[in-house]
Design a protein around this nucleic acid. Structure first.
Lengths: 221, 221
DNA sequence: CCGCTTAGTTAACGCCGTTAACCGAATTAA
DNA sequence: TTAATTCGGTTAACGGCGTTAACTAAGCGG
């Protein structure tokens, strides 16, 4: 009988509806609004019904995270098109901060909130590895290309160190902007300015003197 | 009668004990452990007793924050002693990350968790302004000295932009290190290396070519 | 038709922050 | 000295949270 398959599809459907409800709640009202009871209320189920599909709230959030990581990764689709490897790196930086500010709740969940994530439970069935690794892999690809171009200073050879440094700085711009949005007592410069400034400094610190990309940054009289 | 004063002192004492208990709980077990009930349990009071001294949990945390900000600011005491203004900036950066990693819970509360803080309620009686502004003022002082030294590239003139860029990068190193501590799937470089790398790049992006401080970074063959 | 699996419900537990009503000791005033 | 008042602290309770155990009922295979 194919009816068993239909049952399975229905279960999958319910599971998806739970995730969608959680995502909507999360995106519109923030992390505090994501409650087992409110999720259940949205899909007109009992809170305990969720436990049929997910071990607990953490498992639910973890799965939400992995699917959001794919959205995150997709945000960098256009980056690969940039020809110049140095410029590509900067474009990626801007895209990173842009994602964080347009989806602050998602960014929080992905990179600010520390969920105790037992990675071993993440299904490695996806083949290439976890999406988080994939996003990091994209970074490694872009920074690696800059490194391979031979335009970086000779003392820069440690690719992981380079990636983590760049990531840290971009994360700093993004997360500080998100965290400190309300604090009006500082005269905050536009985030795009801080992003540009950061990338400009980083690039100058990374590439050799006289690199062609530097001349596009600011014409020094 | 002085007995009234004694009563007031006793109240102040209880208030202090509440804050201390909250701080200990927070430092040793993290934010989740800071519960009105657990705080009360520590000082052998009823949870509701806390409400005699603090409007609600948020007010308590806010006050905890301001006192911790003073500890934070004190962490930079030695920075002022560094002669060279560029080196001073780097020393401050290292001290910043060092504070974040040795007091991760405090750092979280201060700069990662976004508490809805109505600053208007913060007593401006301290005179100089809020401690948070003071820490920021210290940053402005240090970066301002670098700017005033005339050793920065001529295109860098916007002090707030400079401060916020430097702060963002250091916050990025610190907070990413805190958030991602558990994720062992990346081969993380030591945080001190990332800090040094970040500062090195920032400095090279900020100061003019041929600045004496650059030669102390890495001798290029 | 019968027994089994299973999506979903009911009821409850122990936590949480917070409030209203109350208590009792110390201070003040008569 | 005694009555009134202040106020630090307690008791009991409310509504909300994540989660569990026990149960219901529908659909499947034999």
């Amino acid at each position: 009988m194919g009816s068993n398959e239909r049952r399975e599809r229905a279960k999958e459907e319910t599971r998806r509806r739970i995730l969608d409800a959680a995502r909507e709640l999360f995106a519109s009202e923030g992390a505090d609004a994501v409650t087992m009871r409110r999720i259940a209320e949205r899909i007109e189920y009992t809170p305990t019904a969720i436990y049929v599909h997910f071990k607990d709230k953490l498992a639910l959030l973890r799965e939400l995270m992995t699917s959001d990581l794919q959205v995150f990764a997709a945000h960098f689709a256009s980056v690969a098109a940039v020809e110049d490897p140095i410029e590509r790196m900067c474009t990626m930086g801007h895209a990173y901060v842009d994602f964080a500010l347009t989806h602050p709740n998602h960014y929080r969940l992905l990179f600010i909130t520390t969920l105790p994530i037992p990675k071993t439970e993440l299904t490695p069935a996806a083949g290439t590895g976890s999406p988080e690794e994939d996003a990091y892999t994209m970074l490694e690809l872009v920074v690696g290309a800059a490194l391979a171009s031979g335009r970086l200073r000779p003392e820069h050879t440690d690719l992981p160190l380079l990636c983590q440094t760049v990531w840290s700085c971009m994360h700093g711009v993004a997360s500080l902007a998100i965290s400190m949005r309300c604090h009006a007592e500082f005269e905050w410069r536009p985030v795009s300015d801080i992003t540009a400034m950061t990338l400009q400094c980083m690039v100058r610190g990374l590439v050799r003197d006289g690199d062609p990309y530097l001349s596009t940054l600011g014409a020094h009289p």
